[in-house]
């Protein structure tokens, strides 16, 4: 196969590879399954109980009562 005389040398780096990675033309890129989210129905899983705030040995500050 004759191509003629050489003209120049190119350094070609495609941004997108010409080699298909199994996603062309039929199969789309695989995405992970969505995580199940709790629904606010009767059969919904119970939400985890919130931790109570820890007071490291200190007495809780008393609430000032106005007018005492």
């Amino acid at each position: 196969m004759y191509l003629g005389e050489p003209v120049r040398v190119l350094h070609v780096e495609p941004v997108v590879s010409p080699v298909p990675d199994g996603d062309f033309p039929d199969v789309a890129a695989a995405l992970p399954d969505p995580r199940p989210r709790p629904t606010p129905g009767r059969d919904a899983a119970p939400l985890p109980e919130r931790r109570r705030r820890q007071t490291r040995g200190r007495r809780p500050r008393s609430t000032p009562v106005a007018g005492a």
């Binding site: 004759y2 191509l3 120049r8 070609v12």
Partner: peptide, 22 residues
Amino acid sequence: TALWGRVVEHEEGWRGEHSYPL
């Protein structure tokens, strides 16, 4: 075909380092 990498351009075509059909 796609050619990339080091490519020598000729008057009527190219010689390439990598190739894959399009």
